[in-house]
Amino acid sequence: MKTSVASRIASFASGGLVRAVLIVLALLWLMPTAGLLLSSFRDPRDMASSGWWTVFTDPGQLTGANYTEILQNDAITGSLWTTALITVPATLLVLVLGAMAAYAFAWLDFPGRDWWFIGVVALLVVPIQVALIPVARLFNTLGLFETTFGVVIFHAAFGLPFAIFLLRNFFAEIPRELLEAARLDGAGELRLFTRVVLPLGGPAIAALAIFQFMWVWNDMLVALVFADPSSPPMTVALQQQMRQFDSNIDVLAPGAFLSMLVPLAIFFAFQKQFVAGMMGGAVK
C-alpha cells in the first residue's frame, strides 16, 4: 500500500469536515422541533416577549402550566379521543379488507384477475382531492356526512390500493408447497388465509399497519371535509386555533406536541417497519 502521509492527513481532515457538516445539519434539522418543544413549556407572556432560546440562559421560565391547562381542556382531550376513534378502525379495516383482497389476487383464480389487479394499481396515485366533492354528496345522501364512520371508510378506501399492492406482492412470495400441503390436509380457503397466509405475511402487514396508522392519525384534509366540526379530531381542533396564532400559541404548541407523541413513539419503536412500508409505497 503506498498511501502517503499527506493523503492520510487529507482524508482524516476531510473526515473531520464531514463530521462537522453533519453535526451542523443535525442541529439545523432538530432546531425547529426543539423550538416548539421548548416554547410549549414557557409562559405565554414569555413567549410574546422573547424567543425560546432564552431558556438556555434562563431555565427558570420553564413551566408545565400549558400542559396542565390543555389536559383540562375538554375540547382538546376530546379531539385526541376522536383521532383515536378514527385511526384505529380505519387501520384495522384496511388491514382486513386489504389482506383478503390481496390473498384473492395472489392465490385464487378468477376471470380477469390480472386486469382487476392492474385496475387497483392504477388507483395508487389518484389524488385524494378528486373524491372530496363526490363523496361529500354521496355521504350527504346516505346520512354519513360529518360522522366518524364516514371518515373511517373514506380513509379505508384510499388506503386500500396501496394495501392490496403491498400485500399481494408479499403473499405471492409464499412458497406454493406450503399452501398446497395445507390444502391437501383439507383446509378451506378461510383456514388457509387465517392460519397460513396471515402469519407468514406478518412483516408486510406490520409495515402496512404502521404506515396506515400514521397516515390517518396525521390527516387533516379528510377530517376538515368529512368530520363532525363539533367534535373534530386533533388536527382540525388545532387548525381552528390557527386564526389567532400569536395569542393561541399556549394551546397550539403543547397541542401540536400531544398530537405528535403517538406517531413519534410508533416511529421510534418501529422504524424498520415504517421504512419497509415506505419503500414499498414509493410512487404512492
Binding site: 453533519l22 445539519l25 443535525a26 434539522w29 432538530l30 425547529p32 422541533t33 423550538g35 416548539l36 416554547s39 425560546w52 400514521m214 392519525w217 396525521n218 390527516d219 387533516m220 388536527t235 388545532l238 387548525q239 390557527m242 396564532f245 400559541i249 397550539l252 404548541a253 401540536a256 406536541f257 398530537s259 405528535m260 406517531p263 413519534l264 410508533i266 416511529f267 421510534f268 422504524q271 415504517f274 415506505m278
Partner: peptide, 22 residues
C-alpha cells in the same frame, strides 16, 4: 443522524406547519 433527519416524516403537516410558523 438518519433517524433525526427522517423524524419529521412521522409528524403531521399540521404540526410541521405550527413548528415553522414559529
Amino acid at each position: 443522524f438518519k433517524l433525526l433527519i427522517f423524524m419529521p416524516m412521522a409528524i403531521s403537516m399540521l404540526a410541521a406547519g405550527i413548528i415553522f410558523r414559529l
